[in-house]
Amino acid sequence: MSNRFEKISRFKDSSFKIFGMFCTFFGLAMLAIFISSIFNEGISRISWDFITSYPSRNPAKAGILSALAGTLWIIVITALAAIPIGIGAAIYLEEFSKKSRLGKIIEINITNLAGVPSIIYGLLGLEIFGRMMGMGGSILAGSFTLALLILPIIIVATREAIKAVPSSLREASYALGASKWQTVKSTVIPSASSGIITGIIIAISRAIGGAAPLIVVGALAYVPFVPTSPTSEFTVLPIQIFNWVSRPQAAFLVNASAGIIILLGITFLLNAAAVYLRIKRSVKY
């Protein structure tokens, strides 16, 4: 009898293991197929000219200069806007606010906000930043919209990182006579920093890929100049890629692949930076 049960549970064990392996490899295989086909099609199109040319009706002459510049502007200003607010909110919620019913409601709402479709943020940004605050279709309006989009992600990630700091560290700090702010500043944040950085990078990676909210806010597609200030009009890589993908001429699809490779490159660099910082700063207890 017991032998049979053992066999069954062993079978269950091994079949779940196989299922898990299948799931893992399925995702990886899809990613590999996608990346290899993109690289196959686009890598030969990447050249200095491609990076330093403006968009054109002629696919062989078209480039991504204005889109790349727009994307870098957007990353920088979105990060400047979202990181301090996100971390500040997370510290308050985790360390200072009382665990009341209101706190609970705020917590649930922030988690829900992380799942709101990005186009909704686009509409919000258009109304508030674009129209009410008169920013129009500028880089600022786009960046602030994306900052709203990624705030919940930063807040949730930072809170998780702060929660993971053992309370023994805080207690030790208090025992030395440190105030609450001193404890947060010198003990909690440094120990949580690797988790916080990971959250920030994931959030910014999401912002980089956003085309829909920016189109709603008023980002353009054909921009024959590099934006020189945050109030300038702009376009970004995902919009340029989206535009090329929907064109009838096959040569534009090659351009789109090349654009995707550049975009992937930027995200990859950001992720590499995150991994490096995490390894450098991770603390073992």
């Binding site: 709603v216 008023g218 353009l220 597609a221 054909y222 024959p224 535009n243």
Partner: peptide
């Protein structure tokens, strides 16, 4: 002259 074109 800065001519820009959008896709709304």
């Amino acid at each position: 002259v800065k001519v820009t074109v959008g896709l709304s």
